[in-house]
Design a protein around this nucleic acid. Structure first.
Lengths: 199, 199
DNA sequence: GTCTATACCGAGATAGAC
DNA sequence: GTCTATCTCGGTATAGAC
């Protein structure tokens, strides 16, 4: 697979941004990594920030969105939840997705554009989708009655943290990520055990 | 309370670092915020990185460590867990601690020194302490038998995420943090409901 | 589309007067 | 301990030849 220069620039930039941060990464470094001169960068991107924007637009979805063939079969509620958790786990152990994740965590804290994307395009959608799912389950009597939004937060929180933690381990303690490899499944087990209707 | 120049530098630096990041914050900006010239900074710190090091050393503990008067009364297991959660909540809604938290999240991803502190001085200790607590509870038959380390991860994960999320909301959607204000308590309720021994 | 050369700026940092 | 003045370096970005 032959990458165009533009693709190479994006690829190198992302690798450097996710390791050193956006500000600490110079255009010279990017150019060197690609194998061209700084000036050649500007044939493909307006400026440095333009590279950042392209990366965000191109990779945000693939970094955060779960596989969309999740079986939302309401009659098998526990395995539906497990499916979602496994989708998180898949992303966590995907090398590329993990790199983007680190990059985005940094940018969420510093870049309003990324932060808004995270809050509106990701978090809110996830919470809404999960709330609906739990609401349905309650109506069918599969789980006890309570606030579906709170359940959604509780369900998501652990999955997100495990992904965060694996991402931190993966920087320079790759082996340690094994210690929480089974946490995604364990979460479903504990969570389901708490909310299920036991009649 | 009169702050020394050195303290003022640390204070201003932290505010700027946590808002714009370490690399995006110049020594000139810090000096201006303090009300002195750049050169005067160097009477107090060797260089810019030296300021960073001092901040980390001075504030890491107060950012992450829970209040140490938590009552680890094993005979009231649920309220012990609630105490821990409330300690998290307290830190989340403390304005200063919240600022440091954002700063440290960024640095965890980019700075090996901070990352090691997070992993060794914070995370491992927390997991160990919680594991011991759950182990004791199992031995006393207060909760069902399972892997105490997994329980510790599951318990901590939600609390950490809620803190993370409140910190993100607090940047420019202060109002939204209310939506998860009760999540800390809710977490204890759901978690305890799952692990308690019901005999 | 990439190169060389260069402009320009702001960064971190130092010397020495006060 | 702070100031002014200044240095050097590396950053982003552009002009114009090939």
């Amino acid at each position: 697979m032959e990458l165009t220069t533009k693709e190479k620039i994006i690829h190198s930039s992302l690798a450097l941004f996710s390791e050193f941060g956006y500000h600490a990464t110079g255009v010279r470094k990017i150019a060197k990594d690609v194998g061209i001169r700084e000036s050649a960068i500007y044939n493909h991107f307006k400026n440095k920030e333009d590279i950042l924007t392209h990366i965000i637009d191109k990779y945000f979805d693939s970094t955060f969105l779960l596989k969309d063939n999740i079986n939302l079969n309401i009659d098998k509620p526990k395995s539906t939840l497990l499916d979602i958790a496994m989708s998180f786990k898949l992303l966590s152990y995907d090398k590329n997705s993990d790199k983007f994740f680190r990059f985005f965590i940094i940018e969420i804290m510093q870049n309003k554009n990324v932060r808004d994307k995270y809050l509106d395009n990701y978090l809110e959608k996830q919470i809404n989708a999960l709330s609906s799912l739990f609401f349905e389950m309650m109506q069918k009597g599969l789980i006890g009655s309570s606030d579906p939004i709170s359940l959604a937060w509780e369900f998501l929180s652990s999955l997100f943290f495990y992904r965060f933690q694996i991402s931190v381990f993966n920087i320079d303690r790759f082996q340690s990520s094994n210690t929480i490899a089974s946490s995604f499944e364990k979460h479903i087990s504990i969570f389901w055990n708490s909310i299920k209707n036991s009649n």
